[in-house]
C-alpha cells in the first residue's frame, strides 16, 4: 500500500526523487503521509482536489484486503 502510494505519486510529479511516504500503523488504521517537492504539491492535489481524491480512492481499494482503514495525508 505504501509502495503503491509512492508509485502513484512518482508517476505524476516532476521531481520523483522528492517523493516520500511514511506509514503510521495502528491496530485498525494506517495513516500514510505523502510528502512531495513544494513544486509538485499542486500536481498531487489537482484541480478541486481531483487527483488527491483519485489517489485516496485507489489506496482505499488496495487496503480492503488488509482489513484496515487507511488515511492518506498530503504533507506540505
Amino acid at each position: 500500500m505504501k509502495e503503491l502510494l509512492e508509485m502513484l505519486a512518482k508517476a505524476i510529479v516532476d521531481e520523483p526523487d522528492q517523493v516520500k511516504v511514511s506509514a503510521v500503523e495502528g491496530e485498525k488504521s494506517i495513516i500514510l503521509q505523502l510528502s512531495v517537492s513544494p513544486n509538485d504539491i499542486g500536481k498531487v492535489i489537482g484541480k478541486q482536489g481531483r487527483i488527491a481524491k483519485a489517489i485516496r480512492t485507489i489506496i482505499k481499494a488496495s487496503a480492503v484486503k488488509e482489513g484496515k482503514k487507511v488515511i492518506v495525508e498530503i504533507i506540505d
Partner: peptide, 17 residues
Amino acid sequence: GKHGETLDAIQTIANVV
C-alpha cells in the same frame, strides 16, 4: 468500486500520466 468510483480514479490517474 461503488458506481465505478475506483475505475474512475484509475482513469483519472491514467489520463494524468
